[in-house]
């Protein structure tokens, strides 16, 4: 120790000390910065989950239960996944305004962040279908013709061959797809909202879903060269229109021809 004490005033010591101090600060900083993002994300996640839980308890728990376990009036949400929450809430279907055969689409009460928070909360309860990524929703290279075949096999029975929607049993209906976004279509196939069956990635892979979306998007953009589309259900609607509408005009003309002039 004596030898050390004797040399502490040596100019080299100062340099050495500075080097050690710099190393220490740099090391601590490096450790701190590498740990911080993970912690920050975890905190952000936890914040979103807490916020989502708050919104859930306010808006959803009266039907789905305080722990999302489900009640007599609403199914359990454990395991439905973030995709289901996003679909139901961002289209205004949930929360329902009143019990009924089917939740109708209505103006949305929540911001995008609110929806994401609730989705995060429900997803934190149990694993379920996640919100599709931008890559999954990219249908630009998809085969529209193949999508048409798959749509007619899997979707047209309820949503009608041109996506106009149709009636189901006891007041329920399959909605029109003419204003649906790619994300809504994808999430609906993935989660099976309300009475729609689930078309999982195992039976309808991502490329097939993209093809179906491309087909629906093509239908949405398709014009109706003749004017009124009449639901695009073909000769039945057109015939009904002629019989019910145009024949009334013809009868009017026939009456005018037959009436005696005064």
């Amino acid at each position: 120790m004596k030898a050390l004490a004797a040399r502490r005033r040596n100019p080299i010591v100062a340099t050495l000390l500075l080097f050690v101090a710099l190393l220490g600060v740099g090391g601590v900083y490096a450790v701190a910065t590498s740990a911080a993002p993970a912690e920050a994300v975890a905190t952000a996640d936890q914040t979103a989950i807490d916020e989502g839980k708050r919104l859930y308890l306010e808006g959803c728990s009266s039907c789905h239960g305080l722990n999302a376990q489900g009640t007599a009036t609403g199914p359990t949400l454990i395991g439905v996944g973030a995709a289901s929450v996003h679909f139901q809430v961002s289209t205004g279907r949930m929360p329902m305004a009143a019990p009924g055969a089917q939740a109708p689409v209505k103006p949305v009460d929540y911001s995008e962040a609110d929806v994401a928070a609730m989705a995060a909360y429900i997803a934190s309860l149990a694993p379920g279908p996640a919100i599709p990524t931008a890559e999954q929703l990219d249908y630009t290279d998809a085969d529209i013709a193949e999508g048409g075949v798959l749509f007619r096999i899997n979707c047209a029975q309820c949503h009608q061959a041109a996506g106009g929607g149709g009636a189901l049993t006891q007041g329920k209906h399959a909605p029109s797809l003419m204003s649906s976004s790619a994300q809504e279509i994808y999430e609906a196939m993935l989660t099976g909202p309300q009475n729609m069956p689930v078309f999982a990635d195992t039976t309808l892979p991502v490329e097939d879903k993209q093809a179906i979306i491309a087909y629906i998007k093509d239908l949405q953009e398709a014009e109706s060269p003749g004017g009124i589309a009449l639901g695009r259900i073909g000769p039945v609607a057109e015939g009904l229109f002629l019989w019910a509408g145009v024949i009334a005009v013809f009868i009017g003309i026939a009456v005018w021809i037959g009436i005696k002039a005064r």
């Binding site: 899997n154 689930v198 078309f199 999982a200």
Partner: peptide, 8 residues
């Protein structure tokens, strides 16, 4: 296992 509950 390809067919989830609720699937068609």
């Amino acid at each position: 296992e390809d067919i989830p509950v609720g699937g068609l």
